[in-house]
Amino acid sequence: MAPFAGYDMPISYPTGAIEEHSITRRAAGLFDIDHMGQFEISGKGADAFVARMVSAKTSDMASPQARYSLLLDEEGLVLDDLFVYKMPGSWWIVVNATNRHADFQWFSAHLTKDVHLADRSDDTYMIAVQGPRALELLERSSGTKVSETGRFCWSNISLGGAPVLFGRTGYTGEDGGELFFPADKALYVWETLLARGLSFGIETMPIGLAARDSLRFEAGMPLHGHEISPSINAIEAGFRWACDFGKDFIGKQALLSLIEAGPARRLVGIEVEGGVPREGYEVIDRDGVVIGRCVAGMYCPTVKKYAANAFVLKEFAKEGQPLEVRIRGQGRTARVVKRPLYIPAYRR
């Protein structure tokens, strides 16, 4: 049996990945997500610049709103996915760790004279607090009614004296938020939340990468490098909803052509029997012909299913479509299922 190594972040804490997943679904999970990057965009031309750079509608956004968006290239391929926060007088863009430098270069390359761009990632720490009891934990820890902050909005709170920006967003399908605060308060905020959880009787545990992945997977949220990437366009990945075709943005023309032509392949959810589907596994039809490939796959602890996300030829993308996934050389019974497997809290 081979050891599994090479990560700087915990795959799981001593609690174990499946229990961590369950704790987040029943109480509160703490996620160290400092690797996320944050850019600040300001200046007279900031509104127009942001509107052109990201796919989502931003013209109707006012402080304190936040919105999910894609960052596309001219071909409509997905450079990254991000959260756009409207601040008083500026924009705050939250990007994925692995893309931080590439994203910053991309924004810089398109910068206009009246726009100022700054990378705030090193000064800013991020912790996510997620779960059905996450708001209660934050409310009682901060003395602020964070539940009055609307979904996809932000507010300023204080945790044990540390100034924290609370964004009511997340990546697990549960209610809760993402906290932004000065990096030198990282350990303090982390330990404060764990201690308050304990004293309030709110089960609160640190959650590792494996559970983060299964939580986001069940909730149908993409992970860059898997469901979306610079070799996947927004239409085949099913992100038309995150694009505002009423404005001009980088990648719009390409997406319009893709919509007209119809994408050759589609992202689908697949349920598998008799094995764990994983990234890279082939999806085959009943004749053994390869018609797609898994981009992510795992055991899903809440819905108790083995499932994958895969890009398949569009003729095979219908819900209920019988397929097979090749696991260690053997075709395993599978079928296309509706995504997400777990309805996120904000849609319930």
Partner: peptide, 17 residues
Amino acid sequence: GISDHAQEELGDIVFVE
């Protein structure tokens, strides 16, 4: 079977073929 050490190294086991 596999040893206690092995299961601990592997982490949560979700399927056995």
